[in-house]
Amino acid sequence: MKLTINGEEKQFENQMTVSQLLTVEQVKMPDMVSVEYNGQILKRPDFDTTNLKDDDKIEFLYFMGGGR
């Protein structure tokens, strides 16, 4: 399965949900990340039930603040 994660193409052998991808990718602060899935923000309760498929585009977003 090919996924584009934060603009970078990656290959994965196993099927997985968004929650599992957070673990596999060792995403920082997984409780606080927002996930953009194919252009739409995924609601948190859907992380466990959204099965990723070939060519999906995922962005991990944080809006915790940073300087300007």
């Binding site: 920082k28 602060m29 990340v33 944080y62 915790m64 603040g65 940073g66």
Partner: peptide, 15 residues
Amino acid sequence: VFAGKTPGYIYTRIA
């Protein structure tokens, strides 16, 4: 973190 390149808390007025 200030540049928004990595997640993190800076100051409680922001998060």
